[in-house]
Structures are given as C-alpha cells and as structure tokens.
Design a protein around this nucleic acid. Structure first.
Lengths: 206, 206
DNA sequence: TTGCGTAGTCAACACTCGTTGACCAACGGA
DNA sequence: TCCGTTGGTCAACGAGTGTTGACTACGCAA
C-alpha cells in the first residue's frame, strides 16, 4: 500500500512526468544538488525544456513542494490519534517512488531561494491545515509540532544520526507521539503543571 | 554579556581570524552559500590563502562547526534546569559577533559534504556531552531533544516562520521546555501515561 | 652573504550551473 | 496551401565555484 503515489510509468504529459521526477529528486537531494540536467536525464528530455516548462528552478521547486505535502492524508479522522499518526508518518519506511509528507521539506532548508518558498508553502499547506482540522490549536503550537517533525526527519534521514536509525523503533515513535501531544495539549503557563483546563486557546499568532 | 565570544578585533594570527570569520558566516549562511572569496574579503586576504590554511572547504567547516558548538556552556549546573536552559538558548536574541550553539548546525543541513561533517560533530560534541553530563539519559532521547531544538531553530531563524517569531515569547519558551522535559523524563512504554518511576534507563542505542 | 621556511599574492584551470535564443518538426484550422 | 501554435532540441553564454602551481616578500639562522 503505497503511502503516496508517484508513478513515472504513467501516460502523463511530459510536464507531469518532469514534475514527478522532480518530487522524487527533491525528496532525496537538496535544492542546490538537484539540477535541470539530472532531471532532464531522468525523464529523457533536453535540460532546456524542463526549464521552459516551469519558468525557473524556483517555480519548479514550488510546484514540487506543494504537490509533495499532502495535508489531507495527515489531518483527517479523529483528532485524538493525530500525535501517533504524525509520529508514525515521520518514521515510516518507504520504498522507491514513494515519499513521505516532509521528505521534500527536510532536504532543502538551506539555500535562501528554496527557503523563501518553504516559508510560504509550509505555512499554507501544513501548519494552517493542521490548525484548521485539529480544532482548538494555536499556530504557534502547530509550528512547534512541525519543528519537531522536521528536526527528527533531518537528524534521521538527512544527517543519519544513529540513535534515531537503529534501536527500538516503537519506543522512538512513542516518545515522539508523547512530545507532540505535550506540544498540542500541554499547559503553557509557567510553573503550572496540572492540566485541568482543556488547552487554552490563545491565538496571538493569528 | 556576550553569550559566545567571537571578536574579530583581536590580535590573533590570520588563521584564527579566518576561522572566526568563518564561524560568523556559517552561522548566517549555508555551507554552499559561504565561499572562500567572501571569507577572504571579510578578513582582507587572498581567497587562495584561506584555502591553503585549512586544506579544503570541508575541513574549514569542520573546524568552524566544532568551535561553534560549546557544550560546556549548556550542560553544566544542576540537571533539573536543563530543559529551560536549552529552550532559552534556542530562542535567545544575539547581536553581531555572537552566535548561539546551534546556529551553524541549522544553516547547513543540506549539502552532503556538510552533513557528513555534521553527523559526526553533532554526535560527539552535542549529544554525547548531553548524555554524559545529564546522568541517566539514552542517546535516543538526547537525539530527539537535539531534533526539537534544531527544528525550532530552523523554522524560526532559517525559514522565518511567523508563529515562532512574534507572539508571546515566554509561552513559546515554556512549551519547548516542557516538550524537552517530556522527551527526557517521559515514560516510553506504550499506553502507560503515569510517570511513577524516574525514567527507565534503557540505552539500547549505545 | 647565503639559504630556508613561513606568510601571502596572483592568475588561471576545470568545472558546474541556470538561463537563453535560434532552430526544427508536427499538427490543426482557415 | 499557408500559417500559427505547441512540443521539443541544440549550442552556447555568463557567472560562480573549489582548487592549484608559480611566484614574491620577509625574517631568522648559519
């Protein structure tokens, strides 16, 4: 059961085939590492054509990034299992032609050209949907959840930090899920550790 | 009170002045963005010389990164205030010629050349010292704390995510501190939410 | 005075990259 | 038949990169 379809073996238009190839490359390599020439070789066209199709590298990245984040797959269903769903997704194995929701994001944080795109898309297509679907939740808390997920993804898949790669995966997943739950529902008032009220809805960041 | 001294106005050797300039540049720009020519202009020498001083760009980055992480400033003192210390550090403002412990780290996650260095240094000079100084703590939990800190730093300073930039900073800090505390002391066994025992020391990642 | 190591400069090599303008082939409508 | 549009190729430009080898200037020791 592929988590996210990306099949190059379809009869799409050439532009769509390039876009899918771009998503796959951007989920494995950084913005700067990914060149028009590599992309063109993947699809079997001229490098100049992939440029003409999308106008500029930045626009191509924008489209690929937007298509790679699929919030409707993450923020559905009951709201209580959101932490474990997110924790599962960020640790999930995935085969060829599959990508996870944050794979493209975590590869291209550097490069100001890419991060200008990332800033907008991450806010509109990840944090905002999470706030919308998950009921009372400030954008700040959602951003912190995104930060944790991105950080784990980076340390694990980009850097290759051993403690997150081997060992008890179920334990890792549970730790992450609990931290997310804490970020969502935890009390933010200093020195008050009891959680009597159901999370204060203080959206100062809107 | 400067958090981390980096003063170019000293009478150091030229090599040391280059290294300090590199630390400053790497804390603001990514590995790929930072060129020998920029660095040379900062110090006022020839680009070829900064190369000869360090052998290669990767080696220069290695030295700069290692000098920028200063674990002895973070993991000292009583162990109970570690979460709030870390949360404060990652959100701290800092003026010119000052850097925060993870500033260099969060700028250069991309670029395989840099991440190969990052992997080792982050493990040896951040996660390992944290485990050592903080008593019973698995490397996995320490890595998750590092992931959260890095993620917050990236979303806030690299991407420029608004919800983490404006709004109540004290609340943000408290949320992060609680999440860290949860990652350090939280119970990892599934479906057991009470925290009676003082954190199981299960170092399967060593 | 000679010689040598150190500090530093200069010009250039060998790439790689995004981007562009000219060109070509096929097709559908007038 | 002509013609404009679409899909696509080709060669090249211009800028940027890390890196290298040859060279110069200085200070110190024999």
């Amino acid at each position: 059961m592929p988590r996210f379809f990306i099949g190059p073996e379809s009869d799409d238009t050439t532009r769509e085939r390039i876009l899918k190839a771009a998503i796959l490359r951007f989920s494995t390599h950084s913005y700067e590492q990914t060149g028009f020439r590599d992309l063109a070789a993947d699809v079997g066209v001229d490098p100049a054509y992939v440029h003409r199709c999308f106008g500029s590298k930045q626009k191509l990245f924008h489209e690929a990034l937007k298509a790679s984040l699929r919030p409707e797959r993450l923020f559905v269903g009951g709201s209580d299992d959101l932490p474990s769903t997110l924790a599962r997704e960020v640790l999930a194995e995935c085969g060829a032609n599959e990508i996870r929701p944050l794979d493209v994001v975590i590869r291209s944080f550097s490069s100001p050209e890419a991060s200008r795109v990332l800033s907008d898309v991450l806010m509109d297509d990840f944090i905002a949907p999470m706030v919308e679907k998950r009921g009372p939740l400030s954008k700040k808390r959602a951003a912190l959840v995104a930060a944790l997920l991105a950080g784990v993804g980076i340390l694990r898949d980009v850097i290759g930090a051993d403690p997150l790669l081997d060992g008890d995966e179920a334990e890792t997943q549970e730790l992450i899920a609990q931290a997310i739950e804490n970020l969502i529902d935890g009390d933010a008032d200093n020195d008050l550790k009891e959680q009597s009220e159901p999370a204060s809805v203080d959206d100062k960041a809107e």
